[in-house]
Amino acid sequence: MPVPKPHQFIVRLLATVCLTIPNLLWAQNLKETFDFANQLYEKRDFDGAANTYRRVIFFDKKEEFRKQCYKNIADCLYATQNFEEAADYYELAFYQQKTDSLKAEILFRKLSCFLLTNNFQYAEIELFSLPENLSESQKRRKTFYAAVLHFSTDRYEEAKKEFISLIDSTDLEAKQKILELFAKNEKISRLNPKTAQTLSMILPGLGQFYAGDVKNGFNSFLLTGGIITWGVLTAINSAARFDVFITMVPWFQRYYMGGYNKAAIIAENQKKKRRAKVYNQLLDVVSK
């Protein structure tokens, strides 16, 4: 039997309400989840916040909150030093930004991620991707990142000009300090691991002394010299001199070869250590 028209209206109204209420409740729950993620972020629970933002993205079919979540997740990952994954989320966040200024901020963050992971090739790409219409503070940041990138990739002349441009032109003391640090860095570049290895081949321990590692230099000299001395004295007082020679050679070879190979490693490590010290001092000068 046909349903009367007033009853048809009520049935349709109830059907509409039944279909709409779950959607309204779900939207409310999704917003509550997003707000909860924001609260976790404010409390510096970055792992919890990132996981909650990911949950919002997964269930946000209408993309009401998704665009805001990408940058928030990236910031959480950056704060927890997960720089590689942070760079991926900054890439997603970049396309959600509406102004050049906000896009530049995302590029700066990506650039920082690549520098911190020593991914200098991608860092340079991001550096060149920065727009021209930057604010004064953003221009300074661009110069700073360029200086860091060029120093890290052994382009010291470019880095020197950029570090100098970061200080006040009237601060002659800071400028002189930067010039002295780059002069020191030039001396560090002269420290050659191959030279250290060759010197230790000529005289055990000499390569370590050249690299500035006195302790290992003495160890190498005394160990190798001690083996030779022991072999010679034992051979003089023994009838089986050939046997003494056979016994001595493997030990001599082990410490002699190990010594000159280690000299090259020590020289390389000393270069990195001294250069890192110069780099940190440069950062101190420009941050004042």
Rank of each mutant, 00 (worst) to 15 (best):
Val3Ala: 06
Pro4Trp: 12
Pro4Ala: 13
Pro4Gly: 06
Lys5Ile: 13
Gln8Cys: 14
Val11His: 11
Arg12Cys: 10
Leu14Thr: 08
Thr20Gly: 05
Ile21Ala: 09
Pro22Phe: 14
Asn23Glu: 05
Asn23Gly: 08
Trp26Glu: 09
Gln28Asn: 13
Gln28Trp: 10
Gln28His: 11
Lys31Cys: 01
Thr33Leu: 04
Phe34Asp: 07
Phe34His: 15
Ala37Glu: 03
Asn38Val: 07
Leu40Ile: 03
Tyr41Leu: 06
Arg44Met: 08
Asp47Trp: 08
Ala49His: 01
Phe59Lys: 09
Lys61Cys: 00
Glu63Val: 11
Lys67Pro: 00
Leu77Thr: 03
Gln81Ala: 09
Phe83His: 07
Ala86Val: 05
Asp88Tyr: 07
Tyr90Phe: 15
Leu92His: 00
Phe94Gly: 01
Phe94Arg: 06
Gln97Val: 03
Lys103Tyr: 02
Arg109Val: 00
Arg109Leu: 02
Lys110Cys: 05
Cys113Gln: 06
Cys113Ile: 04
Leu116Gln: 10
Asn119Asp: 15
Asn119Phe: 09
Phe120Thr: 03
Tyr122Phe: 11
Ala123Gln: 00
Glu126Met: 12
Glu126Thr: 13
Glu126Gly: 02
Phe128Ser: 10
Pro131Trp: 08
Pro131His: 07
Asn133Glu: 13
Ser137Lys: 06
Lys142Leu: 03
Ala147Pro: 09
Leu149Ala: 04
His150Ser: 14
Phe151Gln: 06
Phe151Ser: 06
Ser152Cys: 05
Glu158Asp: 14
Ala159Asn: 02
Lys160Val: 01
Phe163His: 02
Leu166His: 01
Asp168His: 11
Ala174Lys: 10
Lys175Ala: 07
Ile178Leu: 02
Ile178Arg: 00
Phe182Lys: 05
Ala183Asp: 10
Asn185Ala: 10
Asn185Phe: 02
Glu186Asn: 11
Lys187Leu: 13
Pro193Ser: 07
Lys194Glu: 13
Leu199Val: 00
Leu199Asp: 00
Met201Trp: 04
Pro204Thr: 08
Tyr210Val: 10
Ala211Glu: 03
Gly212Ser: 03
Asp213His: 08
Val214Arg: 08
Ser220Tyr: 01
Leu222Lys: 05
Thr224Met: 06
Trp230Pro: 02
Val232Asp: 07
Ala235His: 07
Asn237Trp: 08
Ser238Glu: 12
Ala239Asp: 12
Ala240Arg: 08
Arg241Ala: 02
Phe242Lys: 01
Phe252Asp: 02
Tyr256Glu: 01
Tyr256Leu: 04
Met257Phe: 12
Gly258Trp: 06
Tyr260Gln: 01
Ala263Lys: 05
Ala264Gly: 12
Ile266Asn: 03
Ala267Lys: 07
Lys271Ile: 09
Lys277Val: 06
Val278Gln: 13
Tyr279Glu: 15
Val285Asp: 10
